[in-house]
């Protein structure tokens, strides 16, 4: 807007009517340090000279400033100072003044926001607490969602349990398989050991026979076929060679062994497939017993429709405790759910379900039990004709 060559005239030089800004500027100069005050007069004299030169151009401005310059517009002064090039002391001091104002304004603003935050948070907290209180006491939405989440949780738990069961079954099968393998390996080792043992035994026997023959009966053991082997020493050697070369005798043994070698395989297969089957049976049994126990824990036995007994009301019954008892009209039909009290003891008050679906307790001497299914139809016909 303004250049170094043509500085803008100061407001108090061009217009005497702006008294308030002038006072502000004087207070500004009072706040300056002595050093800045020393430098000020020289600059002012320069500026006044330049202002007098360029006065005709900028003269119309003060009138506009005057017309719009209301009482509170003193803060336009720092802006004018800041934009012009009066020098460092002038430039700095209006800004410092401005910063003081700004600081104070900021402080007020901060105070306002502080109070606002405080009250706001207080009211917000109070409202939140009230809402929480309502949620906890209300047995409607909160309870139902809670139950739903519990159901979901239990479902996830069941699925996880099932997955773990499958995994453990797999691990058990795996382990049993490797156990079988190791057992078979051990049997193989045993067979080898026995074979080598008997091989050694045969050699020992053979050596003893040789010894007996060499010492003419003083050491070793006499061979069974002494009379024969006396004449034919070669036959024994042939037998031994046959045994070692797995000749005719061994081939017969092998055939029989191959025949019975299906047994362990069958046993192994049975173990592999039968073990999970037995495990499954066991688990289902456990589950059924668990469900029965759980339902009994709720105070109601599992209802078996085929064994369900029906009864007919002999008299009207007005419940004294409507929460636990159920109303009866004479001739009403009902299903007897339980002849026991919630603790499982025999009771004179039975739990029934009426035709309306209401479940409650009634005195046993107000009803008569209908014995058979045919009789129910008969009674139904009776009630219909009446």
């Amino acid at each position: 807007m303004s250049s170094t060559a043509v500085p803008r005239p100061k407001p108090w030089e061009t217009s005497a009517s702006l008294e308030e800004p002038q006072r502000n500027a004087q207070s500004l100069s009072a706040m300056m340090t002595s050093n800045q005050q020393d430098s000020r007069p020289t600059e002012e004299s320069n500026n006044s000279n330049s202002a007098s030169e360029s006065a005709p151009e900028v003269l119309p401005r003060p009138a506009a400033l005057n017309s719009s310059g209301t009482y509170g517009e003193s803060n336009t002064i720092p802006g004018i100072y800041g934009n012009s090039n009066y020098g460092i002391p002038y430039d700095n001091n209006p800004y410092s003044m401005n910063s003081i104002y700004g600081n104070s304004i900021g402080r007020y603003g901060y105070g306002g926001s502080y109070y606002g935050n405080n009250y706001g948070s207080f009211y917000g907290g109070g409202y939140g607490a009230g809402a929480g209180y309502g949620m906890n006491n209300g047995s409607g939405l909160g309870e139902s969602t809670k139950a739903t989440f519990q159901l979901i949780e239990s479902l996830i738990g069941a699925v996880t349990g099932f997955a773990q069961m499958l995994e453990s079954t797999y691990m058990a099968t795996h382990n049993s398989f490797f156990t079988m393998i190791s057992v078979a390996e051990q049997f193989g080792n045993l067979k080898e050991m026995l074979g080598s043992f008997f091989g050694i035994f045969a050699i020992m026997k053979f050596l003893k026979k040789i010894l007996y023959r060499a010492t003419k009966g003083r050491l070793g053991i006499p061979p069974k076929n002494f009379a024969e082997s006396e004449g034919s020493k070669n036959k024994l050697i042939e037998d031994f060679q046959k045994f070692n070369d797995s000749g005719t005798i061994n081939s017969n043994e092998k055939a029989t062994r191959r025949k019975i070698s299906w047994k362990p395989l069958l046993f192994f297969l049975m173990a592999v497939f039968g073990f999970p089957y037995l495990l499954n049976k066991f688990i289902t049994k456990l589950q059924t017993s668990g469900t029965i126990r759980a339902s009994q824990g709720n105070g109601s036995e599992p209802i078996d429709p085929s064994k369900l007994e029906f009864a007919r009301a002999l008299y009207d019954f007005v419940p004294e405790n409507p929460e636990m008892e159920v109303a009866l009209k004479k001739g009403d039909l009902m299903a007897i759910l339980s002849k026991k009290d919630p603790l499982g003891r025999d009771s004179d008050w039975w739990k029934v379900r009426t035709k309306n679906g209401n479940i409650g307790y009634i005195p046993y001497n107000y009803i008569e039990i209908i014995k058979r299914r045919k009789k129910i139809e008969h009674v139904d016909d009776e009630t219909r004709t009446h």
Binding site: L314, Y315, D316, F317, E320, N321, M324, E325, D341, P342, L343, S347, D348, W349, Y361, P363, Y364, N365, Y366
Partner: peptide, 15 residues
């Protein structure tokens, strides 16, 4: 005409 109901068990008593 209806008979007196038998004594109530504990869980049916209102008191």
């Amino acid at each position: 005409r209806p008979p007196r109901p038998p004594p109530k068990p504990l869980h049916l008593r209102t008191e």
